[in-house]
């Protein structure tokens, strides 16, 4: 099944049994558009923001979310886990140590996912332009849909950016996450420039890109080669008689 995965229609998400009637590309794309449009429309109305306070801007989130400005009335509410969240709000400067966690959290979120850079620190370093400890441009490391200018932006600005994001999602324009798959090598290169050539995350972005049908010319490259080695290394090491998971658990009890 896997050897011809690359030759298939990229829009086809799962391998289906050959006996099913396979829709031709034109038919599929028409359906896809209708369903996609509908899905976008729904998506834009139920957004969950990952509860990750990276910098000082996080102090304006409680007012935005609680009674006074009340984001929940437009369908945005906080979420505590990355897996269930749609929006990663980078609330301000990102220290090197945080950036690692931000990248990890971002990769754990399920597509489609959106990133909002909050405050001038994420745009071009802001206040901390000459600090050795913070990154200057967020979108070099993870793809960013929208930025809010200001230091710090007011709750109204946060609301405005959420509404703008909804409009973009509704119109199918908030697609920065696809860029991460298409140009993974570029992002990984920037990350490695900071964290050393051995840096990579446990998330298999290349496999995910295949899964979503988003393999692009920039997905793999000189910087992702390390990951291939890693995968081979892992395959080599799994012993033949590796116990099945169920067995293992039973014997422990």
């Amino acid at each position: 099944m896997s050897e011809n995965a690359g030759s298939r229609n990229p829009l086809q998400l799962r391998d289906q049994p050959e006996t099913c009637r396979t829709a031709d590309a034109e038919e599929r794309s028409a359906w896809q558009r209708v369903i996609g449009r509908f899905a976008d429309n729904c998506r834009a109305r139920s957004l969950f923001v990952l509860h990750y306070c990276t910098g000082c801007g996080a102090i304006e989130l409680p007012p935005t979310i609680t009674s006074r400005f009340d984001m929940e009335r437009v369908g945005v509410s906080p979420m505590v886990t990355p897996r269930q969240a749609d929006i990663l709000l980078i609330t301000g400067y990102v220290a090197l140590k945080t950036l690692k966690r931000v990248i990890l959290s971002y990769e754990q979120m399920q597509a489609p996912k959106y990133v909002i850079g909050f405050g001038s620190c994420t745009i071009n370093g802001g206040m901390y332009w000459n600090s050795y400890a913070t990154i200057k441009q967020l979108d070099q490391y993870i793809p960013t849909d929208l930025f809010i200018a200001g230091c710090m932006p007011r709750p109204e600005a946060v609301q405005e950016v959420f509404l703008e994001l909804m409009r973009m999602i509704d119109a199918g324009k908030a697609n920065a996450w696809r860029d991460y798959y298409r140009n993974y090598d570029h992002y990984l290169a920037n990350q490695q420039a900071l964290f050393g050539p051995q840096w990579h995350t446990p998330t298999d972005i290349v496999a995910e890109a295949k899964h979503y049908g988003l393999m692009g010319p920039g997905t793999t490259g000189p910087h992702t080669r390390l990951l291939d080695q890693h995968a081979e290394w892992a395959l080599d090491r799994i012993p033949e008689d590796y116990p099945e998971r169920g067995e293992n658990e039973r014997s422990e009890r």
Partner: peptide, 21 residues
């Protein structure tokens, strides 16, 4: 980093790129 001999400005210039604006 707090040593006077460490120049944070130079470090930033060589590590990070600036956005054209």
């Amino acid at each position: 980093p707090m040593l006077k001999s460490f120049d944070t400005r130079a470090y930033v210039d060589e590590t990070y790129a600036w956005r054209d604006y």
